[in-house]
Simulated scan of single mutants.
Amino acid sequence: MLEAVQRWSEDELRSVNAQIEYLLRDALRKAGRLKPAKPDPVDDDE
């Protein structure tokens, strides 16, 4: 399994750790277990 993740991370130009984090975040999002990201605050000075 590690070799498959290593190859995949190389294909995606990510480190293995970043690839694992990406996979976990995607799985959590798909399972509805990840809180929605907070929107960026709007800068009223523009």
Rank of each mutant, 00 (worst) to 15 (best):
Q6H: 03
R33F: 03
L28N: 02
Y22F: 12
E21M: 12
M1R: 12
L2I: 09
K38I: 07
D40T: 14
N17E: 14
S15C: 06
K30Y: 00
R33Y: 01
R25Y: 05
D40Q: 15
N17T: 12
G32N: 01
M1F: 06
D44I: 06
K30A: 06
A27T: 06
P36S: 07
E46S: 09
V5S: 04
D26Y: 01
Q19E: 15
D45W: 07
L24A: 12
G32Q: 03
E10L: 11
A31P: 08
D45A: 09
L24M: 13
R29T: 12
L34E: 09
L23I: 15
D26I: 00
E10K: 13
L28F: 02
I20G: 02
K35A: 14
L23H: 13
L23S: 15
E46L: 12
G32D: 02
P39I: 06
S9W: 01
N17Y: 08
L34C: 02
E3S: 03
Y22H: 14
R33D: 01
Y22C: 07
L24I: 15
A18D: 15
L23K: 13
R25K: 11
S15R: 07
K35M: 10
R14Q: 11
D43W: 01
L28E: 08
M1N: 11
K30E: 10
D11V: 05
Q19C: 15
S9N: 03
A18M: 12
N17F: 03
P41I: 04
R33L: 13
D11N: 11
A37M: 09
N17V: 10
L23T: 14
K35N: 11
E10A: 13
Y22T: 11
D43K: 03
D43N: 11
D43L: 01
L24C: 11
I20C: 09
V42I: 14
A27F: 02
D40A: 15
Q19W: 08
L34I: 05
A37W: 07
K38W: 06
P36V: 04
R33H: 02
